[in-house]
Design a protein around this nucleic acid. Structure first.
Lengths: 208, 208
DNA sequence: CTTATAGTTGACTAGTTGGTCAAATAATAT
DNA sequence: ATATTATTTGACCAACTAGTCAACTATAAG
């Protein structure tokens, strides 16, 4: 009953775009409203607060990221290690496009919000923690497969390795943003595979 | 001539502490003044803007970090790889103390500002880029030494490897902050060594 | 002891922040 | 056609933002 509206979706879309290019605290409710052509009164009809809009925006971001990036790659049957390379490559393409379009490497929207808000808003921190957990699970599954297929040592700790890879991806994104240089992503991409190799697989003895 | 003052130093110290625990945009000039017991009029006597204070705060942060962390470790004569482990361990201790004290893993102050401000303030981005360059140089020197001493393959790309290690450190800090869990730093610390090993040194053939 | 100068103070902008609300409006289900 | 309900609107608020400034004060150097 009553009328229908696309205002809520427009607000979320604008929030993702604006906060993605700048930051949570640098983007005000008014600017989000202006950008989406929605009046502030409507904003607070749909969201009790800026934080609530942000929580929904994070959900939407994560949903799209899974749908457009993670699922296509991790449901495909390419070789385990290759999946990481493809992901890093897609990220490179994404950041290159961002720089073309806005002049700036924007980095990972999730990591950006995580660093900005983790000490400021416990609810948002927990939400992103949960998403990182889910994200690492994609990696962990692949690592377990690789161990089972004999491509990785049985000494591999899948959970820590998955977290290490996620950490590395986030770190590379941070560097790319700081240097405003998307090629950072492709150049440092190789490191991800190295993080998979259990220490015992490395022939350190040969060199040390 | 005229009177002397410690206000400038106090403002910088407060800015580092407050922005370190929260963020640039979340901390106002007024709060920095209250925290340091300096009146706002004095703030603008010493700094033309909040950004200028921040630029000096970044310099001070970096100076202390070099003096207290990097120089002691990288000027010592412990083994190359061990230096990375010591650094990661010190970071773990630092984040543990931060959590004890404030309840929050605060992450890397430099990385925090980098992600928040790189797309917002080009001057600050450039300053942090330059610091990251200097920081990676510490790593690169060690890697070159390790190559010369035969501890690392001659195939190693010292610059990219150094950047990869810095990226990983920043990524691990980001994860630690997002999970509000300092043990993340110690648990994922091992990965740094793996990033040093040139692909050709890895006996992938054994497993693949 | 004076004078030049560096630092301090508090009151003051003008603009923005997140958020509120009552009244108007449009559409839907009956 | 009507009653119900969802949405829209714009005016409004108090608190806060970065930044200004003229008057005041302390001191270091001559």
């Amino acid at each position: 009953m009553g009328r229908t509206s696309t205002a809520k979706e427009k607000l979320i879309t604008s929030a993702i775009e604006l906060m993605g290019n700048r930051s949570y605290n640098a983007v005000g409710v008014q600017e989000i409203c202006d950008h989406s052509g929605v009046k502030k009164g409507s904003f607070y009809h749909f969201f009790p607060s800026k934080r609530d809009l942000t929580l929904e925006a994070i959900d939407t971001m994560w949903g799209k990221f899974k749908e457009q990036m993670l699922d296509p790659i991790f449901n495909s049957d390419i070789k385990a290690f290759e999946k990481f390379n493809v992901l890093m490559n897609k990220s490179y393409e994404y950041q290159s496009a961002a720089k073309e379009c806005t002049g700036c490497v924007t980095g990972c929207g999730m990591g950006n919000l995580a660093l900005e808000l983790s000490t400021q808003d416990e609810i948002i921190r927990q939400k992103i923690e949960q998403i990182f957990e889910e994200w690492a699970q994609y990696f962990e599954d692949v690592i377990v497969d690789a161990v089972n297929e004999g491509d990785l040592s049985v000494d591999t700790d899948p959970r820590s390795t998955a977290q290490a890879i996620l950490a590395y991806m986030e770190g590379v994104s941070l560097m790319g943003k700081t240097f405003n240089d998307p090629t950072m992503l492709s150049r440092l991409g190789e490191g991800m595979i190295q993080l998979c190799i259990s220490k015992k697989n490395i022939s350190l003895e040969d060199n040390m």
